[in-house]
Structures are given as C-alpha cells and as structure tokens.
Simulated assay, not measured.
Amino acid sequence: MKPFEFKQFTIQQDRCAMKIGTDGVLLGAWVPIGGSESSILDIGTGTGIIALMAAQRSDAEIIDAIEIDAEAYEQAVDNFESSSWGDRLFCYHASFQEFVEEMDDQYDLLISNPPFYAEDYKTSNKQRDIARFQGSLPFEHLLVGASKLMSDHGKFAIILPYKEEEKIIKLAKEVSLYAHKITRVKGNPTSKIIRSMVLFGFDQAVPQTDELIIENSRHQYTDAYINLTQGFYLKM
C-alpha cells in the first residue's frame, strides 16, 4: 500500500487496521490550538495522523499518543520518527484505561477520533474490529479518563456520529465536562448531518455551534473545507 503524503509529513499505513480517513484529518485540522498548549495527547492514534497534525500546528513541547494495537503502535512510532517533529512525539503502547491509571501527568489538550461502531456485529478482521468498535473504548471510559488527564484549563476534542452527540454531551456533564464548541458535518448541502466535532472544557458555557459541509458536489470541495484542510492535503 502506498504511503499517504501530506504537505509536511508522510504516513505509512499498511500495518494499521484504520487507514487515513476524512474524520481524523477533519478533527486534526478543526481542533482549536491557540499556542498556549505545552502538552497534547492523542487517544487511539492509529497511524499517528492527529498527533502529527498537532505537531505541525503547535509549539507544544510534549505530544503524546496512545495506541492499543501492536501493529498500529509500531507504525505510529515509525511515522513519528520519520517526521520533522520526532523529538516532540512519543507513543505509548497501552489501553487508555491502563494509561489513565498509570499516568500522573496532565495535558492541556486531548484529542480523540475514537472507535464508534457500537452495533453488535463483528467482522472477520479482528484488528479492524478493535480499531472500529466502541467495545474497546466505551464513551464513558473516554470521558472519565479525559477528565482526569486534563489540566485545569485543558480542553478535550472528539469526533463522533451525530446520533451520539446528545448522549455524549449528557455523559460529559456527569464528569464536569461541558461542550464549548460543536461543529456538525455534512457530506454535501442536501445530505444528513453525519458527524459532530465537540470541544469540551471544565467551565460551564453555552457552546458555539456551526456546520461544515465537505463538498458542494462530487470532488468539488467547499471553501470552508478547503480553508480548514489546505495546510495538510497536497492537492488543496
């Protein structure tokens, strides 16, 4: 499988169950990074795409990532080491639950493109199932862990199916996390909302909400999508 070339880095993905997709790139480009973040954590890094995007966009000295799958973990490490930011990127081979129990560090920004197929079916590809299915990292665990790992002014950004948005915002409140920003994503102007990107913080707030449409028509990307992703995609 050919590597995926971005403007400032290259991703090898032949050993990862979850390949580069729109969700990861969208979240990595959308997450607000203000310049004050000294530490960032990418939960369930897969190929390492979101951590690498964070390295390109920020001056954070520490950009850590966690990956449970051994093959994906090794690939993420290789992708980190072959980038320009290898000295700032580090990947842990662990489950998120183990990581939360063992780490005393806190982070200014947490980002996760989690597995979110909660439906009760499995395919014949176990590695892909672990990467795709919420069973290996339920939202409750993600939110509880995030609330423990966030610094006082920290933020947590996640992308999830739109149908799960209300549920996760409600769950988040139980661990004192509140939605600050919500962007709902549509494939084209007439399609249904498919994804929600949500930014959480500890302060209670009325969330800013907006909508992002990816394409006006097939391969005709909207200005908003181009503006968001053109720092990364070669052809944008």
Rank of each mutant, 00 (worst) to 15 (best):
P115E: 09
K186D: 04
Y117P: 00
I169V: 14
Y107L: 04
E101N: 14
S112M: 04
S147I: 03
L160I: 15
I194F: 08
H153L: 12
P115L: 07
L143C: 04
K170W: 00
G135H: 15
Q134W: 00
G187Q: 13
K173P: 00
K167G: 04
S176A: 09
I158L: 10
D120M: 11
V175F: 10
K163M: 07
V175Q: 08
R184K: 15
L171T: 11
F133R: 15
P189D: 09
G154S: 07
D105N: 15
M103D: 10
A172T: 11
D120T: 03
Q134H: 04
P114L: 03
L143W: 03
Q127D: 13
F133K: 15
D120R: 10
S136I: 11
E165P: 03
P189G: 10
E174D: 14
K181V: 01
M103G: 02
K122I: 02
I169D: 03
K148I: 09
Y178C: 02
P161G: 08
I182C: 08
L160E: 04
E174L: 07
H180T: 02
P161E: 04
P161D: 03
I182Q: 08
G145P: 11
L171C: 02
K167L: 10
K155W: 00
E101Q: 13
N188A: 10
L177W: 10
S176E: 14
A172I: 12
G135W: 12
H153C: 09
R195C: 02
S136M: 13
N125P: 02
Q127A: 11
A118F: 12
Y121Q: 12
L143G: 05
E102D: 15
I168S: 00
H141L: 08
V144I: 14
E174Y: 00
Q127W: 01
I182P: 02
D104S: 09
T190I: 09
E174T: 14
E101L: 14
L177K: 07
L109T: 05
G187D: 14
K148Q: 15
E101C: 07
G145N: 09
K167A: 11
P138S: 02
L149S: 11
L149A: 06
D104G: 09
K170C: 00
Q106E: 14
R195G: 02
F116W: 12
S112E: 08
L149R: 14
I168A: 03
A179Y: 01
I130D: 13
A118C: 06
H153R: 12
D120V: 01
K155V: 01
D129N: 15
